[in-house]
Amino acid sequence: MREKKIVKDYTKQKMLVFGVLVGMVILIALFAPYLTSYDPYEQDLGNALLPPGKEHLLGTDRYGRDMLSRVMVGAQSTIFSALLLVVVITVMGSMIGIICGYHGGKLDVFLMRLSDIFLAFPGMVFAIAVASVMSGGIFNAVVALACISWPKYARITRSQVMAIKNMPYIEAAKLSGSGTLKIIRKHILPNIAGAIVVTAVLDIGTMIMEIAGLSFLGLGATPPTAEWGSMMSNGRSMLQTSPWVILAPGTAIFLTVMIFNLAGDTMRDILDPRQRKG
C-alpha cells in the first residue's frame, strides 16, 4: 500500500523568511554609513589590493579602500535607485494603462502603438542610447530605464482594466452616481492592484541588474561613488590577480537579486494563486 503524502503549504513561512531577508537588505543599505568600520572613499595606497583577511574582511581595492564598506555603501545607490525606478515605472505605467483601458478610443491606440515601438526595441540598447545622451549619473540611468520599462506595466494594467471594466459591479457603481475617478479609485484599482504589485516586486531584481549593468558600462554611477556595477567594472582587469575586487560586488548583486526574486515569487503565490507553479 502506498501512503499518500500530504504536502504542507509553507507559503506563509516562506513569505516570512524572505520578507525578513528583504527587510535586512534594505536596513543594511539604509544604515550602511553607520555600519561600516572604514570610510568607503578613503584611499590608502599602502594597503592596496589586500586579499580578504582579519583587517579587511573582503579585502581592499586598488586604491586601498575597504571592499566590505564599499559593498555596503554601494547597496544604497544600487538598491534604492532600483526601488525608485520600480516605483516610477509602476505608477507611470499603470496610470497610462488605466487611461488606455478605461477610456479606449484614439488615445488608447496612440499610446499602445507607442508602447509597441518601445517593446519592439532591444531595451538595454535603448537605455544605453538614452543614458549616453543624458551623460551618465545614476539618476539619469534611472530615467533612461524608466523610459524603456513603462510599456510592460501599461500593458498589464490595460488588460486588467479591460477585463473588469464591463463587469456589472462597475455598471452598478455608475448607477450609484459615482464618477469616473471614484470608480477607478474605489472599484478598479483595488481589484487590479494585486497583479501590478506582484509584477513590480518581481521586477526589483531585474532592475537592480539593469542599473548595475548600465553602471558597469560607465553610464550609471560616476566614480568615485560606490555602486555595485561600477565596482565590478573597476575590478574586471584584476579578475585573475585579485578576484575579490570583482567577486564581492558580484556576489552582493547575486544574493540581493535572488532574495528579491524569491520574495516576489512567494508574494505572487499569496496574492495571485492562479499563476502558482506546481
Partner: peptide, 29 residues
C-alpha cells in the same frame, strides 16, 4: 437620472464589488 431610475442586474454576485462589503455597496449612492 440615477436618482430616478435604478437597475437590478442578472447575476447578483457580479453586481457587487468583490472587495467591498454589501453594506458599502448599498451606501455608495
Amino acid at each position: 437620472l440615477y436618482t430616478k431610475i435604478q437597475m437590478v442586474f442578472q447575476s447578483p454576485q457580479d453586481s457587487f464589488d468583490p472587495r467591498c462589503s454589501l453594506g458599502d455597496g448599498i451606501m455608495e449612492s
